[in-house]
């Protein structure tokens, strides 16, 4: 059941994003940035947690999930360390994903060569 929910919620988020891309010509970098910020904001307002509980990866795999992870990390860190936590929490919580993207990409650049598209 959780798989179906993840599929549906993830699908709806991506489908809505496609409408946004088709209608507004917003560049992908803008949309992704907006989604991460949106994820932080919605989590802060307590609105994203219920979606995560309902849809699991359907809510955490889209980039709002990245913002969700950061926001959760920050709130825990602020509780434990106070002001310093505001600076450390977000990156600490999302460090796994960021480090993976950087390191795997570096490896990919070593192993693969860029190709033609035509």
């Amino acid at each position: 059941m959780i798989y179906v929910k993840a599929f549906l919620v993830g699908g709806v988020i991506c489908g809505l994003s496609q409408i946004l891309i088709d209608r507004t010509r917003l560049t992908p970098a803008r949309i992704l940035s907006a989604y991460v910020v949106l994820g932080v904001a919605l989590t802060g307002l307590g609105l994203w947690e219920p979606v995560v509980r309902f849809a699991g990866c359907g809510a955490t795999v889209p980039l709002m999930g990245f913002g969700y992870t950061m926001a959760k990390g920050v709130s825990e860190a602020v509780m434990q360390q106070g002001l310093l936590g505001a600076l450390t929490g977000g990156l600490t919580a999302s460090a796994g994903g960021i480090a993976a993207a950087v390191f795997f990409s570096l490896l990919a650049a070593v192993i693969f060569s860029p190709g033609d598209r035509s």
Binding site: D22, P114, R117, S118
Partner: peptide, 19 residues
């Protein structure tokens, strides 16, 4: 195509859709 694309738009392996 390839030299222009990487200068003007995105890297060739970037998954963006063109209008």
């Amino acid at each position: 195509f390839c030299s222009a694309e990487r200068q003007y738009r995105y890297p060739l392996e970037y998954g963006g859709q063109r209008p």
